[in-house]
Nucleic acid binder design. Structure first.
Lengths: 188, 188
DNA sequence: TATAAGACTTGCCATTTGGCAAGAAGTAAT
DNA sequence: ATTACTTCTTGCCAAATGGCAAGTCTTATA
Protein backbone atom coordinates (compact mmCIF):
# COMPACT_ATOMS: atom_id res chain seq x y z
CA UNK A 1 0.00 0.00 0.00
CA UNK A 2 2.88 2.35 0.78
CA UNK A 3 4.17 1.81 -2.73
CA UNK A 4 0.91 3.11 -4.10
CA UNK A 5 1.02 6.19 -1.90
CA UNK A 6 4.60 6.95 -2.89
CA UNK A 7 3.59 6.59 -6.51
CA UNK A 8 0.67 8.96 -6.14
CA UNK A 9 2.69 11.59 -4.31
CA UNK A 10 4.92 11.91 -7.37
CA UNK A 11 2.03 13.62 -9.08
CA UNK A 12 0.98 16.07 -6.37
CA UNK A 13 0.79 16.71 -2.66
CA UNK A 14 -1.72 15.22 -0.24
CA UNK A 15 -2.03 15.47 3.52
CA UNK A 16 -2.20 12.49 5.83
CA UNK A 17 -5.93 12.60 6.10
CA UNK A 18 -6.29 12.48 2.34
CA UNK A 19 -3.84 9.64 2.15
CA UNK A 20 -5.92 7.71 4.66
CA UNK A 21 -9.00 8.27 2.55
CA UNK A 22 -7.23 6.75 -0.42
CA UNK A 23 -6.11 3.76 1.63
CA UNK A 24 -9.67 3.23 2.81
CA UNK A 25 -10.94 3.04 -0.73
CA UNK A 26 -8.23 0.67 -1.92
CA UNK A 27 -8.20 -3.11 -1.69
CA UNK A 28 -5.14 -5.32 -1.78
CA UNK A 29 -5.58 -8.45 -3.82
CA UNK A 30 -3.47 -11.21 -5.32
CA UNK A 31 -3.75 -12.46 -8.84
CA UNK A 32 -2.26 -15.83 -9.78
CA UNK A 33 -0.16 -16.28 -12.87
CA UNK A 34 -2.32 -16.49 -16.02
CA UNK A 35 -5.42 -15.12 -14.27
CA UNK A 36 -7.19 -12.17 -15.84
CA UNK A 37 -7.61 -8.78 -14.23
CA UNK A 38 -10.06 -7.77 -16.93
CA UNK A 39 -11.31 -9.43 -20.06
CA UNK A 40 -12.23 -8.54 -23.61
CA UNK A 41 -15.97 -8.38 -24.11
CA UNK A 42 -16.57 -7.01 -20.65
CA UNK A 43 -16.75 -3.54 -19.16
CA UNK A 44 -13.68 -2.85 -17.04
CA UNK A 45 -14.84 -2.48 -13.44
CA UNK A 46 -11.60 -1.69 -11.64
CA UNK A 47 -8.44 0.32 -11.76
CA UNK A 48 -5.37 -1.49 -10.52
CA UNK A 49 -1.90 -0.66 -9.32
CA UNK A 50 0.85 -3.26 -9.63
CA UNK A 51 2.62 -3.69 -6.31
CA UNK A 52 4.44 -6.83 -7.26
CA UNK A 53 4.56 -8.91 -10.43
CA UNK A 54 4.00 -8.26 -14.10
CA UNK A 55 0.75 -7.88 -16.02
CA UNK A 56 0.36 -7.79 -19.76
CA UNK A 57 -2.26 -6.22 -21.98
CA UNK A 58 -3.21 -8.38 -24.92
CA UNK A 59 -5.87 -8.91 -27.54
CA UNK A 60 -6.71 -11.02 -30.55
CA UNK A 61 -6.60 -9.83 -34.15
CA UNK A 62 -9.35 -10.61 -36.62
CA UNK A 63 -7.12 -13.43 -37.81
CA UNK A 64 -7.10 -14.89 -34.31
CA UNK A 65 -3.50 -14.05 -33.57
CA UNK A 66 -2.72 -13.13 -29.98
CA UNK A 67 -0.90 -9.81 -29.60
CA UNK A 68 0.75 -8.55 -26.45
CA UNK A 69 0.17 -4.82 -26.46
CA UNK A 70 2.12 -3.90 -23.33
CA UNK A 71 3.72 -5.05 -20.11
CA UNK A 72 2.93 -3.39 -16.81
CA UNK A 73 5.46 -3.96 -14.07
CA UNK A 74 5.72 -2.85 -10.45
CA UNK A 75 4.71 0.69 -9.59
CA UNK A 76 2.43 1.26 -12.49
CA UNK A 77 -1.20 1.98 -12.92
CA UNK A 78 -3.13 -0.61 -14.87
CA UNK A 79 -6.49 -0.13 -16.55
CA UNK A 80 -8.27 0.06 -19.84
CA UNK A 81 -8.97 3.54 -18.64
CA UNK A 82 -11.00 4.98 -21.51
CA UNK A 83 -13.42 2.08 -21.42
CA UNK A 84 -13.41 2.06 -17.62
CA UNK A 85 -14.53 5.71 -17.60
CA UNK A 86 -17.03 5.30 -20.37
CA UNK A 87 -18.50 2.03 -19.10
CA UNK A 88 -17.68 0.64 -22.51
CA UNK A 89 -16.81 -2.88 -23.49
CA UNK A 90 -13.09 -3.49 -23.69
CA UNK A 91 -11.42 -5.40 -26.47
CA UNK A 92 -8.36 -6.22 -24.39
CA UNK A 93 -7.35 -8.62 -21.70
CA UNK A 94 -5.21 -7.70 -18.74
CA UNK A 95 -3.53 -10.90 -17.65
CA UNK A 96 -1.04 -11.68 -14.91
CA UNK A 97 2.27 -12.89 -16.37
CA UNK A 98 3.47 -13.82 -12.89
CA UNK A 99 1.80 -14.13 -9.53
CA UNK A 100 0.88 -10.54 -8.70
CA UNK A 101 0.11 -8.36 -5.74
CA UNK A 102 -2.22 -5.56 -6.72
CA UNK A 103 -4.05 -2.68 -5.15
CA UNK A 104 -7.42 -2.14 -6.79
CA UNK A 105 -10.17 0.44 -6.76
CA UNK A 106 -13.73 -0.32 -7.70
CA UNK A 107 -15.31 2.15 -10.06
CA UNK A 108 -17.47 3.48 -7.26
CA UNK A 109 -14.53 4.02 -4.91
CA UNK A 110 -12.44 5.54 -7.66
CA UNK A 111 -15.13 8.10 -8.40
CA UNK A 112 -15.62 8.80 -4.75
CA UNK A 113 -12.00 9.87 -4.44
CA UNK A 114 -12.78 12.71 -6.82
CA UNK A 115 -15.57 13.85 -4.54
CA UNK A 116 -13.84 13.56 -1.18
CA UNK A 117 -10.29 14.67 -1.97
CA UNK A 118 -9.77 18.21 -3.13
CA UNK A 119 -7.05 18.16 -5.75
CA UNK A 120 -7.42 14.48 -6.53
CA UNK A 121 -8.53 14.97 -10.12
CA UNK A 122 -5.38 16.70 -11.36
CA UNK A 123 -3.30 13.96 -9.76
CA UNK A 124 -5.49 11.26 -11.22
CA UNK A 125 -5.34 12.71 -14.70
CA UNK A 126 -1.60 13.07 -14.66
CA UNK A 127 -1.27 9.44 -13.60
CA UNK A 128 -3.63 8.22 -16.28
CA UNK A 129 -2.05 10.29 -18.99
CA UNK A 130 1.48 9.30 -18.09
CA UNK A 131 0.40 5.69 -18.09
CA UNK A 132 -1.01 5.99 -21.60
CA UNK A 133 1.95 8.01 -22.78
CA UNK A 134 4.61 5.59 -21.65
CA UNK A 135 2.93 2.74 -23.41
CA UNK A 136 3.28 4.57 -26.70
CA UNK A 137 6.88 5.64 -26.16
CA UNK A 138 8.54 2.51 -24.85
CA UNK A 139 7.07 0.14 -27.39
CA UNK A 140 8.91 -1.57 -30.24
CA UNK A 141 9.57 0.46 -33.37
CA UNK A 142 7.89 -1.17 -36.33
CA UNK A 143 10.53 -0.27 -38.91
CA UNK A 144 13.43 -1.67 -36.92
CA UNK A 145 14.56 -5.24 -37.39
CA UNK A 146 13.76 -7.84 -34.79
CA UNK A 147 17.20 -7.80 -33.18
CA UNK A 148 17.08 -4.05 -32.63
CA UNK A 149 13.58 -4.32 -31.20
CA UNK A 150 14.76 -6.98 -28.78
CA UNK A 151 17.79 -4.96 -27.66
CA UNK A 152 15.65 -1.88 -27.08
CA UNK A 153 13.15 -3.97 -25.17
CA UNK A 154 15.98 -5.11 -22.90
CA UNK A 155 16.95 -1.49 -22.32
CA UNK A 156 13.41 -0.33 -21.63
CA UNK A 157 12.39 -3.31 -19.50
CA UNK A 158 15.60 -4.84 -18.15
CA UNK A 159 13.84 -6.48 -15.23
CA UNK A 160 11.25 -8.37 -17.24
CA UNK A 161 13.11 -10.81 -19.43
CA UNK A 162 13.82 -13.37 -16.73
CA UNK A 163 10.36 -13.28 -15.25
CA UNK A 164 7.97 -13.82 -18.11
CA UNK A 165 7.67 -16.49 -20.80
CA UNK A 166 9.56 -15.63 -23.95
CA UNK A 167 6.49 -16.29 -26.02
CA UNK A 168 4.93 -13.16 -24.53
CA UNK A 169 8.02 -11.14 -25.29
CA UNK A 170 7.94 -12.50 -28.83
CA UNK A 171 4.34 -11.50 -29.30
CA UNK A 172 5.14 -8.05 -27.91
CA UNK A 173 8.05 -7.61 -30.29
CA UNK A 174 6.10 -8.92 -33.26
CA UNK A 175 8.25 -11.95 -33.99
CA UNK A 176 7.71 -15.65 -33.65
CA UNK A 177 9.04 -17.44 -30.64
CA UNK A 178 11.50 -19.27 -32.87
CA UNK A 179 12.92 -16.07 -34.28
CA UNK A 180 13.29 -14.60 -30.82
CA UNK A 181 15.13 -17.69 -29.73
CA UNK A 182 17.58 -17.33 -32.63
CA UNK A 183 18.05 -13.64 -31.96
CA UNK A 184 18.95 -14.33 -28.35
CA UNK A 185 21.40 -16.99 -29.42
CA UNK A 186 23.15 -14.65 -31.85
CA UNK A 187 23.56 -11.92 -29.27
CA UNK A 188 25.26 -14.07 -26.69
CA UNK B 1 -14.52 27.13 -35.27
CA UNK B 2 -17.95 25.46 -35.33
CA UNK B 3 -16.22 22.17 -36.03
CA UNK B 4 -14.28 22.53 -32.81
CA UNK B 5 -17.41 23.28 -30.81
CA UNK B 6 -19.23 20.30 -32.26
CA UNK B 7 -16.24 18.14 -31.39
CA UNK B 8 -16.16 19.38 -27.81
CA UNK B 9 -19.87 18.89 -27.28
CA UNK B 10 -19.45 15.18 -27.95
CA UNK B 11 -17.73 14.97 -24.59
CA UNK B 12 -20.17 16.95 -22.45
CA UNK B 13 -22.68 19.75 -22.38
CA UNK B 14 -21.94 23.45 -22.35
CA UNK B 15 -24.22 26.46 -22.52
CA UNK B 16 -23.89 29.23 -25.08
CA UNK B 17 -22.03 31.50 -22.74
CA UNK B 18 -19.45 28.82 -22.06
CA UNK B 19 -19.12 28.13 -25.76
CA UNK B 20 -18.41 31.79 -26.35
CA UNK B 21 -15.71 31.72 -23.70
CA UNK B 22 -14.03 28.89 -25.53
CA UNK B 23 -14.24 30.71 -28.84
CA UNK B 24 -12.67 33.77 -27.26
CA UNK B 25 -9.68 31.79 -26.09
CA UNK B 26 -9.15 30.05 -29.42
CA UNK B 27 -7.21 31.32 -32.40
CA UNK B 28 -7.61 30.19 -35.98
CA UNK B 29 -4.36 29.76 -37.85
CA UNK B 30 -3.10 28.23 -41.05
CA UNK B 31 -0.08 26.01 -41.34
CA UNK B 32 1.52 25.43 -44.73
CA UNK B 33 2.52 21.99 -45.90
CA UNK B 34 5.77 20.84 -44.28
CA UNK B 35 5.67 23.52 -41.58
CA UNK B 36 5.97 22.43 -37.96
CA UNK B 37 3.32 22.93 -35.32
CA UNK B 38 5.78 21.90 -32.62
CA UNK B 39 9.32 20.64 -32.68
CA UNK B 40 11.51 18.15 -30.88
CA UNK B 41 13.82 19.80 -28.40
CA UNK B 42 11.26 22.43 -27.50
CA UNK B 43 8.53 22.67 -24.91
CA UNK B 44 5.11 22.39 -26.57
CA UNK B 45 3.36 25.72 -26.11
CA UNK B 46 0.01 25.07 -27.75
CA UNK B 47 -2.81 22.63 -28.11
CA UNK B 48 -4.27 22.41 -31.59
CA UNK B 49 -7.42 21.15 -33.24
CA UNK B 50 -7.30 20.14 -36.89
CA UNK B 51 -10.10 21.84 -38.82
CA UNK B 52 -8.77 21.02 -42.23
CA UNK B 53 -5.76 19.09 -43.46
CA UNK B 54 -3.54 16.38 -42.06
CA UNK B 55 -0.76 16.60 -39.49
CA UNK B 56 1.70 13.89 -38.61
CA UNK B 57 3.64 13.17 -35.46
CA UNK B 58 7.18 12.05 -36.10
CA UNK B 59 10.55 11.68 -34.48
CA UNK B 60 14.05 10.41 -35.16
CA UNK B 61 15.51 7.21 -33.74
CA UNK B 62 19.00 7.06 -32.29
CA UNK B 63 20.07 5.72 -35.65
CA UNK B 64 18.73 8.84 -37.34
CA UNK B 65 15.80 7.15 -39.00
CA UNK B 66 12.66 9.23 -39.32
CA UNK B 67 9.55 7.55 -37.93
CA UNK B 68 5.99 8.69 -38.44
CA UNK B 69 4.24 7.93 -35.19
CA UNK B 70 0.73 9.00 -36.14
CA UNK B 71 -1.49 10.94 -38.50
CA UNK B 72 -4.00 13.45 -37.21
CA UNK B 73 -6.78 14.33 -39.62
CA UNK B 74 -9.75 16.67 -39.46
CA UNK B 75 -11.68 16.87 -36.21
CA UNK B 76 -8.96 15.72 -33.94
CA UNK B 77 -7.08 17.20 -31.08
CA UNK B 78 -3.36 17.51 -31.63
CA UNK B 79 -0.72 17.97 -28.94
CA UNK B 80 2.18 16.35 -27.19
CA UNK B 81 -0.10 16.66 -24.25
CA UNK B 82 1.97 15.15 -21.45
CA UNK B 83 4.89 17.42 -22.23
CA UNK B 84 2.58 20.36 -22.82
CA UNK B 85 1.15 19.95 -19.31
CA UNK B 86 4.49 19.31 -17.68
CA UNK B 87 6.35 22.08 -19.52
CA UNK B 88 8.76 19.37 -20.58
CA UNK B 89 10.83 19.15 -23.71
CA UNK B 90 9.21 17.10 -26.44
CA UNK B 91 11.04 14.56 -28.53
CA UNK B 92 8.52 14.72 -31.34
CA UNK B 93 7.64 16.94 -34.23
CA UNK B 94 4.13 17.76 -35.27
CA UNK B 95 4.32 18.60 -38.95
CA UNK B 96 1.69 19.56 -41.50
CA UNK B 97 1.41 16.93 -44.23
CA UNK B 98 -0.90 19.24 -46.22
CA UNK B 99 -1.84 22.87 -45.94
CA UNK B 100 -3.85 22.98 -42.71
CA UNK B 101 -6.42 25.07 -40.98
CA UNK B 102 -6.09 24.79 -37.23
CA UNK B 103 -7.64 26.18 -34.10
CA UNK B 104 -5.05 26.63 -31.38
CA UNK B 105 -4.97 27.45 -27.69
CA UNK B 106 -1.98 28.93 -25.96
CA UNK B 107 -1.02 27.24 -22.73
CA UNK B 108 -2.28 30.25 -20.79
CA UNK B 109 -5.66 30.26 -22.51
CA UNK B 110 -5.99 26.51 -22.21
CA UNK B 111 -5.45 26.70 -18.47
CA UNK B 112 -7.82 29.61 -18.17
CA UNK B 113 -10.62 27.52 -19.59
CA UNK B 114 -10.32 25.26 -16.57
CA UNK B 115 -10.78 28.26 -14.31
CA UNK B 116 -13.64 29.99 -16.07
CA UNK B 117 -15.77 27.08 -17.27
CA UNK B 118 -17.33 24.85 -14.67
CA UNK B 119 -17.23 21.34 -15.98
CA UNK B 120 -14.49 21.98 -18.50
CA UNK B 121 -11.94 19.67 -16.92
CA UNK B 122 -13.92 16.45 -17.32
CA UNK B 123 -14.53 17.33 -20.95
CA UNK B 124 -10.89 18.21 -21.50
CA UNK B 125 -9.67 15.00 -19.94
CA UNK B 126 -11.99 12.85 -21.96
CA UNK B 127 -10.80 14.54 -25.14
CA UNK B 128 -7.15 14.13 -24.25
CA UNK B 129 -7.54 10.53 -23.20
CA UNK B 130 -9.52 9.56 -26.27
CA UNK B 131 -6.91 11.22 -28.42
CA UNK B 132 -4.12 9.19 -26.80
CA UNK B 133 -6.19 6.04 -26.86
CA UNK B 134 -7.04 6.14 -30.55
CA UNK B 135 -3.42 6.53 -31.47
CA UNK B 136 -2.62 3.26 -29.78
CA UNK B 137 -5.56 1.35 -31.25
CA UNK B 138 -5.52 2.34 -34.88
CA UNK B 139 -1.83 1.89 -35.44
CA UNK B 140 -0.16 -0.84 -37.47
CA UNK B 141 0.28 -4.24 -35.83
CA UNK B 142 3.94 -5.10 -35.62
CA UNK B 143 3.53 -8.84 -36.13
CA UNK B 144 1.49 -8.52 -39.30
CA UNK B 145 3.15 -8.48 -42.68
CA UNK B 146 3.47 -5.26 -44.60
CA UNK B 147 0.54 -5.96 -46.93
CA UNK B 148 -1.82 -6.54 -44.03
CA UNK B 149 -0.62 -3.39 -42.31
CA UNK B 150 -1.25 -1.42 -45.48
CA UNK B 151 -4.75 -2.83 -45.94
CA UNK B 152 -5.65 -2.07 -42.32
CA UNK B 153 -4.26 1.41 -42.71
CA UNK B 154 -6.59 1.92 -45.67
CA UNK B 155 -9.51 0.77 -43.54
CA UNK B 156 -8.60 2.95 -40.58
CA UNK B 157 -7.68 6.03 -42.57
CA UNK B 158 -9.42 5.73 -45.94
CA UNK B 159 -9.31 9.45 -46.57
CA UNK B 160 -5.58 9.92 -46.14
CA UNK B 161 -3.93 7.89 -48.84
CA UNK B 162 -4.54 10.33 -51.66
CA UNK B 163 -3.57 13.39 -49.69
CA UNK B 164 -0.17 12.67 -48.23
CA UNK B 165 3.14 11.51 -49.72
CA UNK B 166 3.53 7.76 -49.74
CA UNK B 167 6.87 8.07 -48.03
CA UNK B 168 5.07 9.21 -44.88
CA UNK B 169 2.68 6.29 -45.10
CA UNK B 170 5.66 3.98 -45.56
CA UNK B 171 7.39 5.35 -42.50
CA UNK B 172 4.16 4.97 -40.52
CA UNK B 173 3.76 1.36 -41.61
CA UNK B 174 7.39 0.54 -40.98
CA UNK B 175 8.34 -0.36 -44.54
CA UNK B 176 10.50 1.30 -47.14
CA UNK B 177 8.91 3.40 -49.78
CA UNK B 178 9.94 0.82 -52.37
CA UNK B 179 8.22 -2.00 -50.55
CA UNK B 180 5.08 0.05 -50.17
CA UNK B 181 5.13 0.75 -53.87
CA UNK B 182 5.34 -2.97 -54.64
CA UNK B 183 2.60 -3.78 -52.17
CA UNK B 184 0.27 -1.30 -53.80
CA UNK B 185 1.07 -2.73 -57.20
CA UNK B 186 0.28 -6.27 -56.07
CA UNK B 187 -3.07 -5.32 -54.60
CA UNK B 188 -4.38 -3.67 -57.72
C1' DT C 1 11.50 -42.10 -9.81
C1' DA C 2 8.56 -42.01 -13.75
C1' DT C 3 5.74 -39.54 -16.60
C1' DA C 4 3.64 -35.84 -18.70
C1' DA C 5 3.30 -31.08 -19.89
C1' DG C 6 5.10 -26.82 -21.02
C1' DA C 7 8.99 -23.85 -22.44
C1' DC C 8 12.61 -23.21 -25.30
C1' DT C 9 15.90 -24.35 -29.21
C1' DT C 10 17.42 -25.85 -33.73
C1' DG C 11 17.45 -27.38 -38.76
C1' DC C 12 15.62 -26.78 -43.18
C1' DC C 13 13.59 -24.23 -46.70
C1' DA C 14 10.18 -20.77 -48.66
C1' DT C 15 8.73 -16.14 -48.47
C1' DT C 16 9.10 -11.40 -47.37
C1' DT C 17 11.55 -7.33 -47.10
C1' DG C 18 15.53 -4.24 -47.56
C1' DG C 19 19.32 -1.85 -50.10
C1' DC C 20 21.12 -0.07 -54.17
C1' DA C 21 20.64 1.79 -58.57
C1' DA C 22 18.16 3.28 -62.39
C1' DG C 23 14.14 4.88 -64.62
C1' DA C 24 9.42 6.94 -65.20
C1' DA C 25 5.94 10.25 -64.06
C1' DG C 26 4.39 14.41 -62.31
C1' DT C 27 5.08 19.45 -60.90
C1' DA C 28 6.97 23.98 -60.64
C1' DA C 29 9.85 27.66 -62.26
C1' DT C 30 12.29 29.88 -65.90
C1' DA D 1 9.42 24.08 -74.24
C1' DT D 2 13.22 23.22 -71.15
C1' DT D 3 15.11 22.34 -66.95
C1' DA D 4 15.30 20.98 -62.39
C1' DC D 5 13.15 18.81 -58.67
C1' DT D 6 10.33 15.69 -56.26
C1' DT D 7 7.63 11.59 -56.02
C1' DC D 8 6.90 7.14 -57.23
C1' DT D 9 8.13 2.66 -59.55
C1' DT D 10 10.94 -1.29 -60.95
C1' DG D 11 14.86 -4.79 -61.36
C1' DC D 12 18.24 -7.30 -59.09
C1' DC D 13 20.17 -9.62 -55.34
C1' DA D 14 21.21 -10.23 -50.29
C1' DA D 15 19.46 -10.55 -45.73
C1' DA D 16 15.85 -11.23 -42.41
C1' DT D 17 11.98 -13.69 -40.92
C1' DG D 18 8.32 -17.19 -40.89
C1' DG D 19 6.42 -22.00 -40.99
C1' DC D 20 6.93 -26.68 -40.05
C1' DA D 21 8.88 -30.37 -37.67
C1' DA D 22 11.79 -32.39 -34.43
C1' DG D 23 14.53 -32.28 -30.45
C1' DT D 24 16.13 -30.74 -25.72
C1' DC D 25 15.42 -28.98 -21.29
C1' DT D 26 12.81 -27.80 -17.22
C1' DT D 27 9.12 -28.23 -14.08
C1' DA D 28 5.05 -30.16 -12.01
C1' DT D 29 2.70 -34.08 -10.43
C1' DA D 30 1.57 -38.63 -9.43
Amino acid sequence: MEKLIAYILQFGNLNNQQIDLIKNKATEIELRKDAYFSEAGQIPRQVGFVVDGVVRGCYYTNQGEEITRCFIGENNLMADYVNFEANAVSSDYLQACTDCKLVVFSKQNWEELSRIIVGWDPIKNKMVQLCMYQKSRKGPVISQDATTRYLEFMENYPSLINRIPLIYVASYLGVTQQSLSRIRKNIR
